[in-house]
Amino acid sequence: MPGPEKRRLSNRTKVAAVLVILCIPLVIAINILFFEDRSYYITSFVIIALSMVPFALVFEGRKPQARELVVIAVLVALTVAGRTAFFMVPQFKPVVAMVIIAGASLGAESGFVVGALSAFVSNFIFGQGPWTPWQMFAFGIIGFIAGLLFYQLAASIGAPSRDGSMRPENASYLKWYDINRLGSNVRARRRVERLRILVLCVFSGTATFVLYGFLLDTAAVLMFTSGEFSWTGLVATYVSGIPMNAVHASATVCFLLLLAKPMIEKLERVKKKYGLLGAQA
């Protein structure tokens, strides 16, 4: 039973990925480039809100088990608590780092759910607003991509067993370069460590800066100019947003440096204890 079940899930994930990564930007582009309609803001708002529907459907359709819900709820609560803990420092927040870790160790779908719900739940504290769907989408998609990159790569690098199915115990990015395989080669170990950290940091910094920063800036521009679209306006906003986004990106990198290793280790342990291994791909 678990075999086909798993394959169906991963297909669903693929469909969701295609929908989101291709269709949505396409629709946005079409709207921006070809339609001289004045409701850019509404269109984009609707697209953003709708783009989360397939994720929600996939997640709900999978009927996640109790323990998986608990792990996700715990991560959401930790993320939100982290955001509130740093409420006095603008943009210096651990949210993206946590979401990336969630995606990397629980997979793309759960990564999206953790991201989107963290944004949503934290806005029960900070206040919901027209920015809520944008934040949900931005955090969600970062978690999703982190899951695709790190979880999938992990699974493909972890040696597949003979029947072709993924071996769940290999399905974590920590096992990417299984340090124990390198034995006592200290230099190789260090190199791997450094590489691993570098990859994660580059991804997290870029994701924060580009995905989150530009998405939210775009949202602001669209709201400010709801009738029209102006490249200069957009560029001006992006430029003025650079310092803030840079702070956010570097904060993410800092938190990731601090949290990645211990958090993923803890999640791995709990996944084992819960029996959550291989629950999804």
């Binding site: 929600a56 997640f59 709900e60 009927k63 996640p64 819900l69 608990v70 996700i72 709820a73 715990v74 959401v76 609560a77 930790l78 939100v80 608590a81 509130t84 803990a85 759910v113 719900l117 949503f120 739940v121 029960f124 504290i125």
Partner: peptide
């Protein structure tokens, strides 16, 4: 509409104040 996600939200809302106190 989204039962699992709604439950996650309720659970997270229960956990957040607990975590703040625990820290």
């Amino acid at each position: 509409l989204v039962p699992a996600m709604s439950l996650i939200i309720a659970m997270a809302l229960r956990l957040i104040p607990r975590y703040q106190a625990q820290v």
